[in-house]
Amino acid sequence: MSETKSTRKIAIICSKGTLDMAYPGLVLANAARQAGIDAVLFFTFWGLDIVTKKKNSKIKVTPVGNPAMGMPNLVGIIPGMTTMATSMMKKKIEGLDIPPIDEFIEMIHDAGVKLYGCRMSVDMMGLTEDDLVPQLEGVITAMDFMDISEGAQTIFV
């Protein structure tokens, strides 16, 4: 069969901490595993929020500076607009039977995705490994990422 014993591997760098940029990496990594493809996720800069315990259930999407959301920037800056847009998007996501971020991470970890945090970002934000979700394989440097992404198709989100 076409998809058995694939030697394909995919490495996704998640660098953003907004809802609309958190999901693509998670969904693609999950799809890779469903298709029998090895997947590695590397969380750097604001992407680290996705795997930070206190933050990953509070990730938001903002209508400001995002013309695709169809809201004038001046309206978007009104207090509460980001919360409203976030709750609308979360409802849509839930309606599609797509899990919230913390549960998604558990699911892809169980599916065999390897998750890593970025050393520089962890240090920069003054975090320790205890602040990060237990599903991480570890916190690694950019050079370590070169090793683990060897031979992988790499995607930057």
Binding site: E3, T4, K5, S6, A31, R33, Q34, A35, G36, I37, D110, A111, G112
Partner: peptide, 10 residues
């Protein structure tokens, strides 16, 4: 994933 290894999706 253990029952249907290497790509349970399909």
């Amino acid at each position: 994933y253990q029952l249907f290894p290497d790509g349970p999706g399909k």
